[in-house]
Amino acid sequence: MKKHHFTWGGLYLALVFVILYAPILYLMIFSFSAGKTMEKYHGFSFQHYADLFADGRMITIVINTLIVALLASLIATIIGTMGALVIKDSRGTWRNSLLSLNNVLMVSPDVIIGASFLIFFTVLGIRLGFMSVLLSHIAFCIPIVVLMVLPKLNELSPTLVDAAYDLGASRWQALSRVVLPAIAPGIFAGYFMALTYSLDDFAVTFFVTGNGFSTLSVEIYSRARQGINLEINALSTLMFFVSLLLVIGYYFISKHSGRRNRIVAVKEGDAQ
């Protein structure tokens, strides 16, 4: 066993993690408190979890949020992957303009995007609610997917597609059997990124939700204005663990497929 020696660097790192995770830990501890506020710990209890599961409105909102996130990231992944394929095949200034248009959406503030969607939907006469939230989530997820998929496409050897044609594949077969499997890690990464962006989006959603439809972040915000209810703590704790599981799952998927999908570069003797 290698002994771990004390270093100032290690201490600094530990401090950073403590500061980052302390608020979350604090919130989690109070979700198990019997009291009504976070001022003082009142002893262990599952009371807030029971409240949470009895709160039908909250459960509906959680389900709504998940539906929006899953649908939006799925649709955004399909559109974004196709977009990345088009950008990859385009040339010169056209390619650069497409990429810039994509990147502008990434860096522009959520508030601006949210406000412009609100104006857009109002002008078109689309009722604010599930559809408007879904559409705007799809819209801001697409650039993320494009950015995750494009580097994988650029890594691919251009002769790979030629090789597929050469062996008799049609355009569709070359795409479905060679290109898509080869860039699958990028597509998965894009999907997961889109999912997390959609799940925790507040600013855009805040503008485009209407009456009767809400997502978690907007609901928590509106409840927090009337004083924090410890039910929120319970919900946050659950969500924290769910996202932890997602991250661990993604790590194993990417570790497994990464070994297999690593792009084969021609390098003499790298396996000898």
Binding site: T159, L160, A163, D166, L167, A169, V264, V266
Partner: peptide
């Protein structure tokens, strides 16, 4: 894809997500 000609590429262009047998079988499967 409809010529009776096959190519060995300079960088080999082997499909990275398939094993050796799957690579070789690709043309026949198509």
């Amino acid at each position: 894809n409809r010529r009776q000609v096959n190519t060995v590429f300079q960088d080999y262009a082997l499909f990275p997500h398939m094993n050796v047998a799957e690579n070789v079988a690709f043309g026949l499967q198509i």
